[in-house]
Amino acid sequence: MAGNPLLSGLAPTHPGEILREDILPALGLPKTAVARRLGISRQTLHDIEAERLPVTPAMALRFGRLFGNAPEFWVNLQRDYDLRTLEAEMADELGAIEPVAA
């Protein structure tokens, strides 16, 4: 996937990392309170933070509402993470596909 050359070699960032490292500490709220406001279980919030669950469109809508940002921010983070992760996993398979000229 062609992209920013400054990012080449860097591991993709899961939205849970941003949530864990930046957003939640800045809120200053207990995770139980955040989960309650989002209408999800504390375990679900923990699993997203731990990068075990993706940020779904429904979760992106919840995050956008609670944090005052666009749900597209969260969906785009997840999409970029998924594409970069899958591209690395499929490198050999993708390399075997001969492109056609448009």
Rank of each mutant, 00 (worst) to 15 (best):
M1C: 13
A2D: 08
G3A: 05
P5H: 01
P5D: 06
P5T: 06
L6E: 03
L6P: 00
L7A: 09
L7Y: 08
G9L: 02
G9F: 08
G9A: 04
A11Q: 00
P12S: 08
P15S: 05
G16D: 00
E17Y: 01
I18M: 08
L19W: 04
L19Q: 02
L19F: 05
R20G: 00
D22I: 13
I23N: 02
I23R: 08
I23P: 11
I23M: 09
P25L: 08
A26F: 03
L29V: 05
P30T: 03
K31G: 13
A33K: 15
A35P: 07
A35Q: 07
A35N: 09
R36W: 10
R36M: 05
R36S: 13
R36I: 04
R37K: 12
R37P: 01
L38D: 05
G39I: 10
S41N: 00
S41Y: 02
S41V: 02
Q43I: 05
T44Q: 12
L45C: 11
L45T: 01
H46S: 12
H46V: 12
H46L: 01
D47H: 11
D47W: 02
I48T: 03
I48F: 02
E49S: 10
A50N: 07
A50G: 02
L53H: 15
L53D: 00
L53G: 02
V55L: 12
V55D: 05
T56S: 10
T56L: 00
A58P: 03
A58E: 07
A58D: 14
M59R: 07
F63W: 06
F63G: 11
G64E: 15
G64Q: 10
G64P: 01
G64D: 06
G64I: 02
G64M: 05
L66C: 06
L66M: 13
L66R: 14
L66P: 09
L66G: 06
G68Q: 10
A70P: 00
A70H: 11
A70W: 11
P71K: 07
P71V: 00
P71W: 02
P71A: 07
E72Y: 04
F73L: 12
W74V: 03
V75T: 11
N76Q: 12
L77D: 01
R79I: 06
R79V: 14
D80G: 15
D80Y: 08
D80I: 08
Y81M: 06
D82V: 07
L83W: 15
R84P: 04
R84C: 08
T85S: 09
T85N: 08
A88C: 06
A88H: 05
E89H: 12
M90Q: 07
A91T: 12
E93L: 14
L94G: 03
L94A: 09
G95D: 10
G95V: 13
G95K: 13
G95H: 10
A96Q: 14
A96V: 00
A96Y: 06
E98G: 15
E98W: 04
P99G: 14
V100I: 14
A101D: 15
A101L: 13
A102H: 14
